[in-house]
Design a protein around this nucleic acid. Structure first.
Lengths: 347, 347
DNA sequence: TGTTAGCACTCTCGAGGTGAGAGTGCTAAT
DNA sequence: ATTAGCACTCTCACCTCGAGAGTGCTAACA
């Protein structure tokens, strides 16, 4: 792909920016009238024609203004984008809200999704911090009624899993507690595999419980993300490109259907275009047909090796990349700090 | 409001049914041609005119067919609706899926939302079973790092709440366990109020923990519902009345915004129109402007006094009420059984 | 008295036509 | 290399208009 000249890059950025604002094709005259370009519309026309030739812009029809192509956006995001600086007051307000919230992960996630949706004016997604390797922290067994036992499993990193199991016969609470204690002591800090290999003398009850524990740990590991929080879905419905509702439907289905979401999240690691830790998928990148009109930004947060989560934004392809990326980086940092402080204090 | 004749009722039901199917105004000729009515279109015309006069039908414009009014729907739902019988095989399949899922409440909720969305072809909502009165079942304290302690609180009924707290100084795990045990023994089966009144000799640590426990129990009680599961949001985008996307936006916002949702759920008890335990809110009932074009069905499930949850469906006003209500009643029964079996076995 | 055939009337909806306006590419002059 | 000027193209909003659907009314009929 041919490299545009300095002036062409400038104009490309201008078109991207204006198109994001107005959602209408941008013409040469419009640019000259709204910016002090120091050149005439004819010159701009020539440059726009060149950019169109190169594949960065296109015309919806012969006599319309220009609109960025996917390639145009990629070039813009990869080379031209300059980070928007978030006002200090905004950073402050947001951080304050998080710290005011105490130590409730659930609330953090909800807040993060909300902030992200508002600031980007698009649909947002946040996954709860999730351990890469699930190591046992604590087992608790609580007799509920009859043969039913509630098993509470705490994983290193703070995730709590619960499960109701039915034993073959009733077991008194003190026996359950003793079993839980014993298992906790023996297998603390171990992951599923280690537990499975470390064969130790166990009672029938303990063996049963341990099977459940291993299964649960494995399940925790196999999940690609923790709980998923969505917000701002209706934001994308407000965008003109999704007015047809059919396009909106396709795009939002990606967020609603678990399997497709997993698919998308899996992509977080295999970067296509990365800007300061934020991955930018433009127009579905040829893989996701439902996202032909949309862009998805993904970023990770957390402490590698301990627990990581994902931030995501889904919006129209003409979204405000600069601002959104800034917000995502800021939030990612903030959440990483929170995770670090909460889970690793005293390490 | 004037009472329609038998024949008028029949025709009203027909119009409601056909309009739900086709989403297009229903004319007299159409009815005569598609049903063996034993009367001519002129007669039907007269009757439709009468129903229009009474306020049960309306014409979008002078020369269009008839469409049910809100009043028409209310009359239909309240007096004319006959329950659709769900095929035995379908009931079986659904029940089977639930029982196959083991004892995982999270999965049940997800499945319930999914089934409800699919069967009603609308947006569905399910809240997790939630105790009316939060009574303590079990406390567990787990030292994580340094002064951080994870408190796991089990509420009678099976709900588990977790919370991270920071102590003023590090406390070894065995002391924490002892405190948790002691507190569990002393306050088991008591609710927040009882605990607050039952002043007992406590250590400083125990007192701190107990404060958190009380607060958490109160928080659990004050919430009007457990965790909320949504599904099928994109279903409503497919309906022609929401093609404009603006209407869709308004309606879906009700589900997205927590406060409005609470508002709506609070209505579950104060029935407006009830059909076999399913409440039907048509066109926002004058209270929710965003739902002017929509209907919302709500039903409760669970074991009163132990734990209850809510099922909900949001769809276009012309939704298939018969089928949706049947599905909701079936699901409500199923979930109630599951809750009863799971939480109250041996009672 | 209730039902029905017939008919004039009204209204929507889509097809087809038209003109203003926007934006272009090209050419020739600077 | 830049720019003014201009012919050209295409969309879009706005018409008109006729087909079609559905109505309400009237008069005949059982």
């Amino acid at each position: 792909m041919i490299e545009p000249t300095e002036r062409q890059r400038f104009l490309l950025a201008l078109v991207v920016h204006e198109y994001a604002r107005t959602a209408a094709p941008i013409g040469s005259r419009y640019l000259v009238e709204h910016y002090n370009l120091g050149m005439s519309s004819a010159t701009v026309r020539n440059e726009l024609a060149a950019l169109t030739e190169m594949g960065y812009l296109r015309q919806p029809h012969t006599s319309a203004g220009r609109v960025p192509t996917e390639e145009g956006y990629r070039y813009f995001v990869g080379r031209l984008l300059q980070e928007t600086h978030l006002p200090e007051t905004l950073r402050h307000t947001i951080a304050h809200q998080f710290y005011q919230m105490g130590n409730d992960v659930d609330q953090w996630m909800r807040l993060a999704a909300s902030v992200l949706a508002h600031q980007s004016r698009a649909a947002s997604l946040v996954t709860a911090p999730h351990p890469e390797k699930a190591r046992l922290k604590h087992i608790e067994l609580i007799s509920t009624r009859g043969r039913q036992v509630l098993m509470v499993l705490v994983i290193v990193g703070g995730e709590v899993r619960q499960r109701l199991m039915t034993l073959s016969e009733p077991v008194p609470q003190d026996v359950l507690s003793a079993a839980a204690d014993s298992l906790t002591r023996q297998f603390q800090e171990m992951d599923a595999e280690a537990i499975r290999q470390a064969r130790v003398e166990l009672s029938a009850l303990e063996r049963d419980v341990l099977d459940w524990v291993v299964e649960d740990l494995e399940r925790a590991e196999s999940r690609i993300a923790g709980e998923i929080y969505l917000d701002g879905l209706t934001n994308v419905l407000a965008e003109p490109e999704f007015a047809s509702s059919e396009e909106a439907r396709r795009a939002l289905r990606v967020l609603e259907e678990r399997s497709r979401l997993q698919d998308l999240l899996a992509r977080t690691v295999l970067a296509t275009g990365t800007v300061g830790g934020v991955q930018v998928l433009i127009g579905g990148e040829g893989t996701w047909d439902e996202l032909r009109q949309s862009s998805v930004l993904l970023a990770q947060y957390g402490v590698p090796g301990l627990a990581i989560g994902t931030l995501g934004v889904l919006g129209p392809m003409r979204m405000a990349y600069g601002r959104t990326i800034s917000v995502m980086r800021f939030l990612s940092g903030l959440l990483s700090d929170l995770v670090a402080e909460t889970l690793a204090e005293g390490d």
